[in-house]
């Protein structure tokens, strides 16, 4: 998920969504041949009577519970390995110690600050980067001139490893919010740019022509026909970008910061506080997953609305 702008990865994530869209359309068209329109219920795989594994797997609460099975088992194994003395406390403190570390940091009012500043940086950087990625992706995807002029440069910039920007950004913007947000922005830009520009090139020509035939052009054509047609791709780009944003956040905060989850990582490493270190990792996992899930909800809504 977190390879910076890997084209294969982004390419793969575009295709299945559009294929799904096609498949769904095909099914609907055949069922719609009947005199009455089909019922809008799309998720009704569950048989009315009786129990079926597939039916349970469709239920939200069941999915949540089943998804939590593995984390629970991991915590169990963690607890067991520490109490069995397989690792020293410095190597791997027991879960309870990590919990206490969290309680301690909350009491001092530090944990909230770390989480808040990191989340803020990610959201701002992601927002700006994704916005620019969308704008440039639209430009390059729709205009051949822009493609010829911009695509080689953007491709070369994408090839620069993320951390290579850090010294330059610090030199230009000093160690502050600007340099961190900019780095995250760079990270979020490329997945959105790549997926959007590629997807726009493959929008159904017939639909675009129909739009043009009815006088749509420029921005109006983009917002009426082209962008709605690539909504699934835009969202897979956004989700990759969000993962990248968290990756770049930690890179930025590891190198130079006095607050944030990345700072908590380095600070704990320097002080030998493995419990806080683990806490930071768990928090990154949980917050990263929550933001991704929120984006997933938005995606579900958008795909239903636009596809």
């Amino acid at each position: 998920m977190t390879h910076p702008g890997n084209p294969d990865l982004t390419g793969n994530s575009v295709t299945p969504t559009s294929a799904q869209g096609l498949a769904a359309t095909g099914v609907d068209v055949t069922t719609a041949g009947a005199a009455q329109p089909p019922a809008p219920d799309q998720g009704g795989h569950t048989p009315a009577n009786g129990w079926s594994p597939a039916g349970v797997l469709d239920k939200g609460w069941a999915r949540l519970l089943l998804g939590l099975l593995l984390p629970a088992a991991l915590i169990g194994a963690w607890q067991w390995s520490t109490s069995a003395g397989l690792f020293s406390v410095v190597q791997l403190p027991p879960p309870a110690m990590v919990f206490e570390a969290a309680a301690d940091l909350i009491q001092r009012g530090e944990l909230g600050k770390h989480v808040a500043i990191s989340t803020q940086r990610v959201l701002i950087g992601f927002g700006l980067g994704a916005g620019l990625g969308l704008a440039f992706g639209a430009l390059v995807g729709l205009s051949r001139v822009a493609d010829v002029l911009l695509a080689p440069t953007i491709g070369a910039l994408r090839a620069v490893p993320s951390l290579a920007w850090v010294p330059l950004l610090i030199l230009w913007m000093k160690i502050g919010e600007d340099s961190k947000v900019t780095l995250i922005m760079i990270g979020a830009f490329f997945p959105v740019f790549t997926t959007v520009s590629l997807a726009l090139r493959h929008v159904d020509r017939n639909l675009v022509e129909a739009g043009r035939a009815f006088g749509l052009k420029g921005l109006k054509l983009l917002t009426t026909v082209q962008l709605p047609a690539v909504v699934p791709s835009v969202f897979s780009g956004l989700r990759l970008a969000l993962a990248q944003a968290w990756l770049f956040l930690v890179a930025a905060e590891l190198i130079a910061s006095s607050m944030g989850l990345g700072f908590l990582l380095t600070d704990s490493q320097n002080n030998g506080r493995t419990d806080r270190l683990l806490l930071a990792i768990v928090l990154l996992a949980v917050i990263g997953k929550i933001t991704d899930a929120l984006l997933g909800v938005a995606e579900k809504w958008a795909v239903k609305r636009w596809a």
Binding site: F214, T224, V225, P228, W306
Partner: peptide, 12 residues
């Protein structure tokens, strides 16, 4: 005004 061989309606 043009009507094409396929309906070419916006599916969304």
């Amino acid at each position: 005004a043009f009507a094409f061989q396929e309906p070419r309606l916006l599916p969304w």
